[in-house]
Amino acid sequence: MSNGLLAPLRRRLSLTFAGQSEGIPEWELALEKGDDAGYFAPDSVTWRVHGGMTPIVGGIRALLTQALNPGVLAGVLDHSYYREDPLARLARTIRWVFTVTYGDTVAAGRACEHVHRRHESVVGEYTDGHGDLRAYSANDPELLAWVHLAFADAFLGSYEYLRGPLPPGGADQYVREWATAGELMGVAEPPRSLAELREQLAAYDDGARLAHSPRLEEAVGFLRRLPLDPLLVPGYRTLFAAAVDSMSNRHVELLGLDRQSLRRGLLPARQGAQVTLAVVGLALGSHGPSEAAARRRLARLGLD
């Protein structure tokens, strides 16, 4: 595919993911600065799982999984301008994930502190799955824990769905490594193995803390049909279908979605997403600017 054909796609993807159509965001370039290697090394499973294009599907899956918790969902619906600026939250999520993954320890800590400050005003009430009214705060440990579980499950699950299983022990290592991000965000006991991740995810499905509701239907419908640039819509629909297809049957059931109804085109969801991400990779490059900046920092420090 020629550069002439890829250029319009590259501009639209950059605007979607970085908020600007030209150049590299300053926050990504800033990851070159710092005085240590950060929490994750280039040979870590975290770099492997968060590198490449699979985090795009992981991000969609994470948002869907987080929305299953009515407390987390209320925080998003009541305190964000997601309809007016639907990509802002995605851009903030990308910035946080990549800063913690590739930045030095100071940058990672600041990124988490920034999220906590934004959360301070996110408070209110919601109705749980049993119909009881409950107060919520985005910095509540229980909600922070669910968000962490959703991230770990989504990014790991999407990687293995699209790229194949990690080597033996790799999934456990990823969960153990990414527990550091949970601790930085104030999660008291993040899982440190795949078995613990699955156990903690299942524990939330108690009838109250995960629930289908009209508000969830609203959020899922919006995520399914994001108001994107027309050039990106077919690819996004393919990736959304793959994100849902990669999820557990129980979570798909709670979302009120049907895998078959989401499948489009001649290819199954997995293969369709793989082709779509290959094209995205051609447009954006196989290694993102966050990883490149981190490698420059490591080279400067003699740690590469």
Rank of each mutant, 00 (worst) to 15 (best):
Y174H: 13
Y174K: 14
Y174I: 10
Y174E: 12
V175Y: 00
V175L: 13
R176F: 10
R176A: 15
R176W: 13
E177L: 06
E177R: 07
W178S: 09
W178N: 09
W178T: 08
T180E: 15
T180I: 15
T180S: 09
G182Y: 12
G182Q: 05
G182L: 08
E183Y: 04
E183T: 14
E183R: 15
E183F: 04
E183L: 15
L184M: 13
L184E: 06
G186C: 11
G186E: 13
G186A: 07
V187Y: 10
V187Q: 04
V187L: 11
V187P: 09
A188F: 01
E189I: 03
E189K: 09
E189D: 14
P190I: 07
P190S: 07
P191H: 00
S193L: 01
S193K: 05
S193A: 09
A195Q: 14
A195N: 08
E196S: 03
L197P: 04
L197V: 04
L197F: 01
R198Y: 00
R198C: 06
E199H: 11
E199Q: 15
Q200T: 05
Q200L: 08
A202Q: 13
A203K: 07
A203R: 14
A203H: 08
Y204E: 10
D205G: 10
G207W: 10
G207H: 06
A208M: 06
A208R: 08
L210P: 02
L210W: 00
A211I: 01
A211T: 01
A211D: 00
A211M: 04
A211R: 01
A211C: 09
H212P: 09
S213D: 02
S213H: 01
R215L: 15
R215P: 03
L216I: 00
E217R: 13
E217M: 07
E217N: 13
E218F: 04
A219G: 08
A219R: 13
V220E: 00
F222N: 00
F222T: 00
F222V: 01
L223V: 08
L223D: 02
R225A: 15
R225C: 07
P227Q: 02
L228K: 08
D229M: 10
D229A: 06
P230G: 06
P230S: 09
